[in-house]
Design a protein around this nucleic acid. Sequence first.
DNA 1: TCTCTTAATTGACATAGGTCAAGGAGATTG
DNA 2: CAATCTCCTTGACCTATGTCAATTAAGAGA
Lengths: 191, 191
Amino acid sequence: MLKSIVTHIKQYVKPSAEELNQFTALLQEVSVAKRKFLLLPGTHVKHEYFVFKGCLKAYYMDDKGNKHVVQFAIENWWIGDFDAFYNQVSSKLHIEAIEDSQLLAINYDDLQALYDEAPVFERYFRLLVTSAFVAQRKRILSALEKDAKARYLEFRLSYPSIETRVPNYHIANYLGVSAESLSRIRRSLKS
Amino acid sequence: MLKSIVTHIKQYVKPSAEELNQFTALLQEVSVAKRKFLLLPGTHVKHEYFVFKGCLKAYYMDDKGNKHVVQFAIENWWIGDFDAFYNQVSSKLHIEAIEDSQLLAINYDDLQALYDEAPVFERYFRLLVTSAFVAQRKRILSALEKDAKARYLEFRLSYPSIETRVPNYHIANYLGVSAESLSRIRRSLKS
DNA sequence: TCTCTTAATTGACATAGGTCAAGGAGATTG
DNA sequence: CAATCTCCTTGACCTATGTCAATTAAGAGA
């Protein structure tokens, strides 16, 4: 359970055994059953979460009740409401489990303190945010450049393990197309 | 000239005078005339740039020759090809001056070394990337949720100082609408 | 296995926004 | 002050994708 997050960290930085212990001591295990929520809008967000088992989605629900998927997360991904977490404002997102999920939570204050005590983790999170930033930029460019079919194909290529685990209408909400359009796109790809 | 970047840094972190000197010693001044390029696709990106005078845009040009604006930058903004800079891959973006511009450049290797010597700057850049990440997430949600008119209104509210300095067709390329559509939107707002 | 719920598909129709083509208003430059 | 440029506007038409409504298929409990 801790092994997966340690492996993840080591892909970015090389903390000492002691530093790793400092970090893992801060983690709390959290479980969320399928269709249950890890986070609701309006909440004060105190944690960011690392998924070690399961699958979840973070989405924004607009005034008309339409859901817009900000992010999916499966094993070895971080999920949370970054905006609310880092700026310590109240959340605007739902985070809902698509499958029964198990996560490791890290607390905001603990993390800030850790940055001072063990700067290697500040680097780890800097690198994480940087790569998330780059991925988001790519998503923005796709939205600007590509039509729905091309975005769907790109999604399948980028996230094959998500595509097979998640209902299509969630993917539609991620890509910014209606479920009906996605269905038609998929039919057109069969031939 | 250095004053503006020092002020910017101090809004995020509190480095010592010595640390600030360390940082500013690494900066090189760069000028780009209107319509000239700071960066072309295919280039090896060695620098990230802080604008202390002027206005620029970073855009991706697709196979059809359509330009998609990734970012504008005016005084006190950082601009560059983050993806190419951090992952040290070749650039996919054009960065072009919209007005005669003056920038401060920081070199990749220098910055990595500085992170070790003065971690306060690693924090500064972590915070910068974090806020850029949050801004991008907002942009993604706008693209998913809002129609062209609403996105334009949001842009005007978020970046009034850019809206007045930049030709409308650049803004259209940022919002993901045609220049013609933006013109019609603007007409509809007059009445 | 039967039932109920959740997901996916399909058709008919509506519409936001794109594309193409033309013209015009300001700027800039020789 | 011409002569270009650059940028913005407008009209006519087209297309991708959305919306609504109904149907079917697939899962999940009991």
